[in-house]
Simulated scan of single mutants.
Amino acid sequence: MKRVVLAKLGLDGHDVGVRLIGKHLADAGFEVVYLGKRVATATIVQVAVQEDADAVGLSCLSGGLGHFASLTVEGLRREGSEAPVLAGGIDEPAEIDRMMAAGVHRHFGPGASMEEIVAAFREAT
């Protein structure tokens, strides 16, 4: 069974979407570790390494997604984890480009389907 760590970043307090993604991933056979809202990147990295996560999913709708996702990728690689990072949310186009250049595996914006997201996690792991 593939293990996925999910978390909300920054000041974003809206977690319905990420929790729904977690449910769909669990229904698709993934083990989901949901860390909750306003989680620091260092905590995400620590838990992902401890849990030997096969992938990390990040969500942020309040801005800062590119910054936080980049920090998460950097932290994982520094700790020796190659877990792919998939990110969903809103940010400036330049920030999305920045996080993709930093090694984020996939980005999902508003309107992405659950089927598309679950398929991306399957492909990434």
Score class of each variant (00 low, 15 high):
residue 103 G to Y: 03
residue 119 A to M: 02
residue 89 G to N: 09
residue 63 G to M: 07
residue 67 H to R: 12
residue 107 H to M: 05
residue 55 A to W: 01
residue 34 Y to W: 06
residue 41 T to M: 10
residue 24 H to P: 00
residue 121 F to G: 07
residue 48 A to Q: 05
residue 40 A to C: 01
residue 45 V to I: 10
residue 8 K to I: 04
residue 41 T to P: 12
residue 61 L to N: 10
residue 53 A to E: 01
residue 49 V to T: 10
residue 114 M to F: 14
residue 96 I to P: 00
residue 116 E to W: 00
residue 68 F to Y: 15
residue 90 I to T: 14
residue 96 I to W: 01
residue 119 A to H: 03
residue 72 T to E: 13
residue 27 D to T: 09
residue 87 A to L: 10
residue 118 V to E: 05
residue 36 G to E: 06
residue 80 G to H: 08
residue 113 S to C: 03
residue 74 E to N: 11
residue 54 D to W: 00
residue 25 L to Q: 02
residue 72 T to Q: 13
residue 42 A to P: 00
residue 65 L to D: 00
residue 104 V to D: 04
residue 79 E to I: 00
residue 26 A to S: 15
residue 60 C to F: 02
residue 109 G to P: 01
residue 116 E to Y: 00
residue 33 V to Y: 08
residue 106 R to K: 15
residue 94 A to S: 14
residue 114 M to D: 04
residue 97 D to A: 15
residue 59 S to E: 04
residue 69 A to E: 08
residue 118 V to W: 02
residue 1 M to V: 12
residue 91 D to Y: 05
residue 4 V to Y: 08
residue 68 F to A: 15
residue 51 E to T: 11
residue 39 V to I: 15
residue 15 D to Q: 10
residue 15 D to Y: 06
residue 78 R to K: 15
residue 8 K to V: 06
residue 89 G to H: 09
residue 47 V to Q: 15
residue 88 G to V: 11
residue 52 D to N: 14
residue 98 R to E: 05
residue 96 I to T: 11
residue 21 I to E: 00
residue 40 A to M: 11
residue 21 I to R: 01
